[in-house]
């Protein structure tokens, strides 16, 4: 129970399924005996899963149109009307 800290460095890689096999085996051996760390690993995984779910803020069409107009002007200031450096 007192060696949870030893796994800390590799925990993120483990919960993302990116840890080496040998490290996975060590962590899993620990998890078999440590209910809290099992919950920790499970909830860390769910944390990212929840972040990837749900709504995304769409880019408002009006903002996109406004940005395109501003960039058009900026581009002309920088490169001139025909694409040459101003």
């Amino acid at each position: 129970m007192d060696n949870c800290r030893e796994y800390l460095e590799n925990l993120c890689a483990y919960v993302d399924n990116e840890a080496d096999d040998s490290i996975c085996k060590e962590i899993e051996k620990h998890l078999a005996d440590c209910p809290d760390c099992r919950v920790m690993v499970d909830t860390l995984r769910k944390t990212v899963k929840l972040c990837r779910e749900g709504r995304e803020e769409p880019l408002p069409g009006e903002l996109k149109a406004r940005m395109e107009a501003i960039l058009e002007q900026k581009w002309k200031e920088k490169f001139g009307e025909d694409g040459e450096d101003a």
Binding site: M1, D2, C4, R5, L8, P35, D36, C37, V39, M40, D42, T43, K46
Partner: peptide
């Protein structure tokens, strides 16, 4: 952020 038991306390983390 480690479970309290790392400090010698037998904590029970919430199972979501």
């Amino acid at each position: 952020f480690l479970p309290d038991h790392a400090n010698g306390v037998n904590s029970k983390l919430l199972d979501w």
